[in-house]
Simulated assay, not measured.
Amino acid sequence: MIIIFIILFALSTFFGFMYINKEVWRAFVGGLSLLLLTISVMLLTLHIKDNWGMEKRTSTETKIIYTAGPLDVGFGMLLKSEIGKATHNYALVYRTDEKDKEPVSHFQPDEKHLVETLKKTADYKRTEDSEAKLVIRTVKWQFKNSFMRLLFGIGNEEGKLVSEHARAYVPKDTWLVLTQEEAKKLQAAAPAMRAKFEAFLKANPIQAREVMELQKSNPEEFAKLQVSQIKEQLGFKE
């Protein structure tokens, strides 16, 4: 609508100064049209430059996420890959459904849409919670009211992305957060660790029974035991 106003005021300014003979009416029509034209151009400039007439609106979405590791172990796993150096911005690997056969990498840069990609970030945080989740905080431009939408709604600006930040919250005692290199190290060491654990159980039948009972009665505590042993044996740090 603002573009239509600018065109109309430009035409009326031209008409007022060029075709009205009476000096008073020429000054009134031409001057008023020029003033309105100037105001319209200034408002459009403010809108383009500073998103005048719009406001940032934030929405939050929470999703449960599932391990990127094997499904037959008691503990969870989140894989991370930092984008750049010391950016604290990560591509994260996890399952979005516990029935998924394979985990999927999320938040990788999209080279075909770099402008949008630069507005999106992701990281992780260890928590005391027992369940892993992903919280996505999205900020978008929205018109303040219907009048502003009618006035400036010409460029598909409604819902334009300002920023998007995703954070994975993972239980610190029952999940591992690993780089790809650490995950490969764990995979390579797993057979030896499993053999060592089985040998320990055979040599200590009473403790073996306690461990098996713990696995059945309290899977969370058993997962904590697994995670602590892996960190200790492979030197993984928080």
Rank of each mutant, 00 (worst) to 15 (best):
G76E: 10
E82C: 04
T87S: 15
E116W: 00
P103F: 09
E82I: 07
E98C: 02
H113Y: 09
Y94N: 03
K49P: 00
S40L: 04
V73D: 11
Y66C: 06
M42S: 09
D110Q: 11
D97C: 12
G74L: 06
K63S: 10
A122S: 09
V115L: 13
K63M: 07
I64C: 00
E102Q: 14
A86V: 07
Y94M: 01
Y66K: 06
M54A: 04
M42P: 00
E98I: 11
S59R: 13
D72S: 12
Y90G: 11
T121N: 07
M42N: 03
V93E: 14
E116Q: 07
K120E: 02
K101M: 12
T67F: 05
D50H: 00
K112M: 06
S40T: 01
K112W: 05
N51T: 10
E55I: 03
S105A: 15
L46R: 04
P103A: 05
M77N: 08
L79I: 15
V104P: 02
G84D: 05
R95H: 09
I65R: 07
E98P: 08
G76H: 12
E102D: 12
P70T: 12
N89C: 01
T62R: 11
G84E: 00
G84R: 04
Y66M: 05
T58K: 13
G84M: 03
T45S: 12
D123H: 08
S40Y: 02
I65A: 04
E55D: 08
L78G: 08
K56S: 07
H106L: 07
G53I: 00
I83V: 15
H113W: 05
E116F: 01
E102A: 15
T45M: 06
S81Q: 15
T60H: 01
D123A: 13
T117C: 03
K63R: 13
T96Y: 07
P70N: 14
L79K: 15
E116P: 00
A68G: 06
I48N: 14
V73C: 05
W52L: 12
K63G: 02
W52C: 06
L92P: 00
K80P: 09
T96L: 13
M77P: 09
T87F: 06
A91W: 11
I64H: 03
D123C: 08
T58H: 00
V73W: 09
E116A: 06
D100Y: 05
A68N: 11
H88Q: 14
V41H: 02
T121I: 02
I65C: 07
T45A: 14
L71Q: 15
N89F: 00
K120I: 14
L44P: 02
A122V: 01
I64M: 04
L92N: 00
K56T: 06
T117K: 04
T96G: 15
F75T: 08
I48W: 14
P103Q: 13
K49W: 10
A68M: 08
D123N: 15
E61I: 09
P70H: 12
D123R: 10
L43E: 03
P103S: 11
L43A: 05
H88I: 04
V73M: 10
W52V: 13
K80N: 08
D72E: 11
F107C: 06
S40G: 01
L43G: 00
T62W: 01
A91R: 07
L46D: 12
K112R: 10
Y90D: 02
V93Y: 09
M42R: 04
T87M: 07
T121Y: 04
L71W: 02
S105C: 08
G69M: 05
K119E: 04
V73F: 05
D50F: 02
